[in-house]
Design a protein around this nucleic acid. Sequence first.
DNA 1: AACGCGCCCTGTCCGC
DNA 2: TGCGGACAGGGCGCGT
Length: 270
Amino acid sequence: MPELPEVETIVRDLRVRITGARFGEVRVVRDDLVEGNVRAFEETVSGRTIASVTRRAKNIVIAIDGDRLVINLGMTGRVLVLDPGTPDPAHTGVGFDLVDGRRVIYRDARRFGRLAALSVQAWERRAAGMGPEPLEDLFTTDLLHAATRTSRSPIKPWLMDQRRVVGVGNIYASEALFRAGITPRKAARRLTRRETSALHTAIREVLQEAIDFRGTTLLDYRDAAGEPGEFSRRLRVYDREGEPCVRCGTPIRRIVQGGRSTYFCGGCQR
DNA sequence: AACGCGCCCTGTCCGC
DNA sequence: TGCGGACAGGGCGCGT
């Protein structure tokens, strides 16, 4: 479900709430959510102090001394911090007690999410295979332009491949291409320098604005406090099939690329 | 090598 | 009201 802005919102909330806290007992309810050996996962995490909570791509990264608890939310994953006495919500997959009495709950209806306890080395090896962070300075127009040169893939699914650029998913790929005025069907390698520059700007702007509004809630997404994101109303094309384009009035179209819905304006995006 | 597709799984919504 | 089909913020593994 969540793309970069939603994960960033959750990470910022979690950082304030649980940094410095210590994990107590860990209970894995749904084994398929955990990568590798479940007992090893529980033992690696329990008793450890939370040094930091950060984000890499769409992953929540919780530093516990020499290891990393890495959470990918898939489509419907949520992380909640519950006060003592609150019952486990539906679809609880993993429950982490904190020694102060609170509980960190991972819940996930569809169970596309994954949790892993990795050594720093294993985590860094994995992270090295991911594309650049779009909001960091390393992500430049030059880099984006160079990366697109060799690919015949349509630009929209290209943007969603986490080996190229991280954090852009189905919503923000459509939104960024609309802002840049580029048709989602254009082959990546055919983007001009000018188009690449517009796309680079659009990606950064739409992700930053979405963070400012605490993400987009379509159905399931909730932040760590259980609140929906406010960016939904600001979407210009996503989930707006048939509605007039905010810029030119042409009805927004929906097509399917790589099995996922793409929304765009046939008038503004060429 | 790069790309496209099917699949993992449950919930919700819409049309009949 | 019930039921079937389509679709949902992701990502992996497969075949070509």
